[in-house]
Computed example of a mutant assay.
Amino acid sequence: MSNAGENVKTVRKRRGLSQRELAAASGVSLSTIRKLEQGDREGARLETLRMLAVALRVPTMLLAAGPHEEDPSTATVDRWAEVRNAIERPPLTVWADDEPPTVAGVRNAAQEISPLFSSDEYDALSVLLPRLLQEAEALGPEGRAVRVRLLQLAGWLMVQTRQFTAAETALERALDDAADRMEAAATINTQCWLLLRQGELSKAYDLAVKWADETEPKISRATPAELSTWGWMLLRVSAAAVRNSQPGDAADALRFAKAAAVALGREHSPENDFLRTFGPTTVALKRAENASVADRPDLVLRLAEAIPATGLKPTSNNRNRHLLDVADAYAKTGQYTEAFDKLGQINNDSPEWLPNQRYARVILERVVKGRRTLTAEMRTMADVVGLPF
């Protein structure tokens, strides 16, 4: 029996529930619970554990066997090998070219490739980023600021593609070089996301709470950058809490984040950093995400109707995640054509982003199971997201 299965069985018995009663209370199928407790499954998705935890009135992580993550595909590992090398084994000597890199040159190059991150152009980044990271390292102390920025972006990219060890290294290096609290908070924001993707919900929650306290400004005289930074820390608190079956804490954090967004009055990107874009639309997207995590597809669809379509660029990471939540809500309510259309929209906007999303495979699997036959487009999409046979 897996540790998760043992934990579910122990808590279920403490609550005086049969497997059938737990299935009815949680919405998890009886066969899934049986297989989990009997050890016929290696583990369960965090969504399943969260549903069981809600029914058993315990934190999700009490049931989890440990961190839950998914390894990147072989193709992903091969594609990013040079980027990982540049992150994990930076050069020990200065650049050997006749014309060594300059701070201004590397900064300009970093600015030029920044749009490639926000538009998820992975092929180009896999070629350009390794050299740029190496040049930034060769700059020495004078290149600290541009090096931190590149490491933040590289860490975010590694989280996005589920290369978590490299992500940890990049973000730790960026944090070590941070010049002030605000620069450090930009890295912490991505570290919280990394912990969430690894299933380390309690660690993500504690880290986000600590930095939300650390960065809380006086609202009456806060700068837009301070409000954005604090708001994002609160969104990370909320995201960790809702996943760890702490709905009250999640709602409280989201309420404070909304207050920061109202004070800001608009979407704001400190220093044109798309990773820190924050405002009323971002909070609305995260409110819908929380509803999705809490298995409220009806609420997700209602909230989505009120979110302005032009609030964020179609290829932004938050926007794509929101469209997945909407697709999932459609699939859960039996609206399979609408669910598939949302997946198609994401694929049209971000064809290199979608294949890295396990969530997309879960949604498409629901669509496949809910239909008698599949269209040619659905079969193609199954290949795109890597849905197993």
Rank of each mutant, 00 (worst) to 15 (best):
W95M: 12
A291C: 07
L36G: 08
E338F: 04
A331W: 13
V367N: 00
M1A: 12
F256W: 06
L254R: 14
V146I: 10
R173I: 00
R221E: 11
E289K: 05
M233K: 13
L264I: 04
K9W: 04
R358E: 13
E226T: 01
T74I: 03
N189R: 13
L275P: 00
W353L: 07
A53Y: 07
P217I: 01
A25K: 15
Q163F: 13
A186R: 13
A174G: 14
L374C: 07
Y336K: 05
A240G: 14
D206C: 04
R89K: 13
L299S: 14
A382T: 01
D249L: 09
N244R: 12
Q111M: 04
N85D: 10
A284Y: 07
R131D: 02
Q134F: 03
V11E: 02
A329N: 08
L196H: 13
V106M: 10
L196N: 12
E6W: 06
A170G: 07
L132P: 00
L62Y: 05
E121F: 00
R131K: 14
G140E: 05
E21F: 02
R15E: 00
E47G: 08
A109F: 04
N108W: 04
S202N: 08
R379S: 02
W353E: 01
L46Q: 14
M1P: 00
N317S: 08
E305W: 02
A259F: 01
A124I: 00
A240M: 09
W193Q: 09
M233G: 12
E112Q: 14
A178W: 02
M51Q: 14
P100H: 06
L52G: 01
P308S: 09
D249K: 12
A44Q: 11
F274Y: 06
R131A: 11
R41K: 13
R79S: 06
A260M: 04
A110D: 05
A241E: 02
W211C: 09
L364A: 10
N7Q: 09
S126V: 01
P355V: 03
